[in-house]
Structure formats: C-alpha cells, structure tokens
C-alpha cells in the first residue's frame, strides 16, 4: 500500500536539458512521479505541457513556446527539479529514509558537471549502484549543475535526475 505522501497528483515543473536546448515544461503526474515516467521502459518520449524552449548557450532567452510537447528521454542529459521531493520515485524507500546517508558525488553527463548528493542506505555501494541499477535516470539531490562549455551557466535544483546512459565521468567526492 502506498503512503499518502507518495501518491502525487497535479503537475511538476522542471527543466529538461539536452546537449543543445533548455526545455522548461510541466509534467502531468497522474500518480506517477517524474522519475518513474523517465524510467518507464515502455515509453520513448516524455510528455510536457506549457513547454518553453531556450538555446542552452543562451538559457534565459525564450525561443519557442508550445502548449504540449514530447521530449525524447534518451536524448535528455539531465532534468532539474526545484524541490527534492519531486525527484523521488513512487517507491521512495530506495532514496529516502531516516537511515539513509548522503554521498557527495560529481557526475559529468552530456556536457554538464553535476555535484550533489546521492542518498542511499549505508549498505549500498554507490559506484556499484550507479553501474548496475536497471534504472535509466537516477536522482542527485541538492545539486548544482555547471555547463562545461560555458561555466557561467549554472543551474540549481533540489533534485537533478541524471541520464545514466550519458554519464561520462562519475566520482565520489568524499568516501
């Protein structure tokens, strides 16, 4: 039985980054959190509503807006969500719990440098988890994202969901 807190409804606003675009939009949850939608192996695209597009190198300028849009999930490098709770899956237990600990990490993914915390049970080996989890996207909490090509472009989010298949470098900042 799911706890009441984990059954999310409504919309979650987020920033979805490809190698060339910053796409802002809202994901309709219908009881399925953003992370689970991204990790749904049966769907190649993620549906966004009120979608606005900016070039990644000029990320504050709006170049297009659409009522609905579809983003191909395997082309996404990261998704930035402002609230860390919005980055949790329906089965929250993997990433949240009173006995979980924060492991500070650096992840270079699709031209972004992400620093933040992967929150797991102490018994889980973090590099093993990153190597072997079947999930496409994993959350990094309280994260700061720097665009490698333009280091003055920085994004911050309570949760940054990282496309594991596009990870170039992964490192633990503290053991």
């Amino acid at each position: 039985m799911q706890s009441q807190a984990s059954v999310r409804q409504g919309y979650v606003a987020g920033e979805f980054m490809t190698r060339t675009y910053r796409i802002s939009g809202e994901v309709e949850l219908r009881g399925v959190p953003v992370l689970d939608q991204l990790n749904d192996h049966n769907a190649l695209f993620l549906s966004l509503e009120r979608m606005f597009i900016s070039p990644l190198l000029d990320p504050a300028t709006l170049t297009g807006n659409f009522t609905h849009g579809e983003v191909r999930k395997d082309m996404l490098g990261i998704a930035v969500l402002s609230q860390w709770r919005d980055g949790l899956p329906l089965r929250e237990g993997r990433y949240v719990g009173h006995d979980h600990v924060d492991h500070e990490v650096l992840v270079v993914v699709a031209g972004f440098e992400v620093t933040g915390a992967i929150r797991l049970h102490p018994s889980v080996n973090v590099p093993n988890f990153v190597r072997t989890t079947p999930e496409h996207f994993i959350p990094v909490f309280d994260a700061r994202v720097t665009l490698t090509a333009r280091r003055n472009i920085v994004f911050k989010g309570g949760a940054v969901l990282i496309n594991r298949s596009l990870i170039e470098v992964f490192a633990m900042l503290k053991d």
Partner: peptide
Amino acid sequence: TARSQPMDKEM
C-alpha cells in the same frame, strides 16, 4: 515564474 534559475532572475 517556475523558471527559477539564477540566469532567469538576472534576465
């Protein structure tokens, strides 16, 4: 706005 990154505030 929901676009709440530092560059959005600057803009």
